[in-house]
Every structure is written in C-alpha cells, then in structure tokens.
Amino acid sequence: MSAHEEHSSEEQHIVSPKIYVLIATALLLCTALTVAASYLELGPWNAVVALAIAVFKASLVVLFFMHIKYSSKLMKLTVGAGLFTFLTLVGMSMSDYISRAWGSF
C-alpha cells in the first residue's frame, strides 16, 4: 500500500488550507466590491465591471477550489471547451438579436 500512496501523492497536489482561506477572503472582498461598484454611476461600464468581477471570482473558484490550476492539460482543455461552447451559444444567438434592428439590405 505504501508504494501506492507514494504514487498517488505524486499524481495529486493537495492544496493547503492557507490558500483556501486566502481565496475565500478574496471572494468575500470581491463581493463587497461588486456591491459597492453597482452604486457608482459608471454608465454602460457598470455591467462591465460587475461581469469582470464575477469572472474574476469564478476563475478563483475554478483555479483553486476546483484545483484546475494543479490539474492536467486535459482538464484545462475541458474547462476551455465548456467556456467556448457557452460563448458560441451566447455570441451567435446575439448576432441575430443585435442585427435585427439594422433592417433589411
């Protein structure tokens, strides 16, 4: 069994609790930040800031809580594929909605 344990500890990176505490604190701070930012008058940038903070928070969760930073290339590619398909769905649907108002040729 000991040989097996050595093997698996090579394979798997155990993230230390310090990092988890750090990430959780960052996430809570970002939450406060995004609430504060929504009260500022930024015009169209309000939405951009809110989404940017959300993307940052989500990246922290994916990279550290979900261990993607320490995972194989395949896992990183998998996450990328999900993101890509999601953006395809949103982006290409919006291509219709945005250009409908342009009228006909």
Partner: peptide, 25 residues
C-alpha cells in the same frame, strides 16, 4: 461532490450581479 458544490457556487457568483445589481445607483 466538491466540484459540483463549487460549480453551484459559481452559478450564483454570476446570478448575483446579473439579477440583484442592475444600476443600483
């Protein structure tokens, strides 16, 4: 299960600004 739970968290991370924080000013 941890992965699942964090994913549910991520969904909320996006829902919160999109639903609650539209032009609070």
């Amino acid at each position: 299960f941890g992965l699942y739970w964090h994913f549910v968290d991520i969904v909320w991370i996006f829902l919160f600004p999109l639903l609650y924080l539209i032009s609070r000013h």
